[in-house]
């Protein structure tokens, strides 16, 4: 792992109306590192992810991706990002291959037919590459979303509940893909409120509560029960 963080969040505050959703949040993520961001509903996890994704501006503080300020230089940040959001970003009436080609072109990538085939094979969708996405399950759409991200080879991957709605087999498969992207040097920030096996890919755990990072610790050998205990202790303390 390199020493310099790829993602730096320094004292970020975000206020909606009179409500401060985030208050002085600071967090670093290095290349090849995965951080699981835990928190209750409404804790501000998705808000933080949207700030990093350049979709929201922080009220105060700063966040940088590879040295570029997300609020001041979003155009420099966006090519470095891969975002897997709640929605899969797919058009039901296009085929899987057409969806990938569209996002690659709009993203300014030179994606050739072979690249698309490789990306689809990488997520196990090569056999349904020319089927309309309308016929896909939620898990298949999630895979297609990941193929879109993999095609761009992002330096930073922002994942909002990536395992939501997936069965056990698909979860295991997604873990493998994310491990591979991590090994290739991508920095991962994974928002979740699950304490299941998906936390296995995380090198660090951060708990967001009361608008702050209440806990930031190496996952080490912590099991799901340990994580749940830690989470409960810090989340309740800060709430």
């Amino acid at each position: 792992m390199s020493v310099e963080p790829v993602v730096r969040i320094i004292g970020v505050r975000k206020v909606f109306g009179l409500v401060a959703v985030l208050d002085s949040v600071s967090l670093d993520i290095r290349a090849g590192e995965a951080v699981a961001l835990l928190g209750a509903n409404g804790a501000g996890k998705t808000t933080l992810l949207k700030i990093l994704a350049t979709l929201l501006r922080p009220t105060r503080g700063a966040a940088t991706i590879a040295g570029h300020d997300v609020a001041r230089a979003p155009e420099a940040v966006r090519p470095l990002l891969g975002v897997v959001a709640h929605g899969a970003w797919v058009y039901d009436d296009l085929t899987a291959r057409e969806n990938l080609r569209f996002w690659a072109t709009v993203g300014g990538l030179d994606a050739y037919a072979d690249d698309l085939t490789v990306a689809l094979a990488g997520v196990g969708l090569e056999r349904v590459a020319d089927a309309r996405v309308r016929t896909f399950s939620a898990g298949m759409k999630r895979r297609l979303s990941l193929a879109r991200v993999m095609l761009a080879r992002p330096r930073v991957l922002l994942l909002d509940e990536p395992f939501a709605g997936l069965d056990q087999r698909a979860r295991k498969w997604l873990e493998g893909r994310l491990e591979a992207m991590k090994a290739a040097g991508a920095a991962l920030l994974m928002v979740t409120h699950s304490f299941g096996r998906e936390l296995g890919i995380a090198d660090r755990l951060a708990v967001l509560a009361g608008g702050r990072i209440a806990l930031d610790t190496a996952r080490g050998t912590l099991g799901p029960d340990d994580v749940q205990r830690l989470y409960a202790a810090h989340a309740e303390e800060s709430a």
Partner: peptide
């Protein structure tokens, strides 16, 4: 409806092409 709005927003480059 297809949750693709954010995807278009995040596309790098001049948005006037969209």
């Amino acid at each position: 409806e297809h949750d693709c709005w954010e995807g278009l927003l995040l596309a790098p480059g001049d948005k006037s092409a969209i």
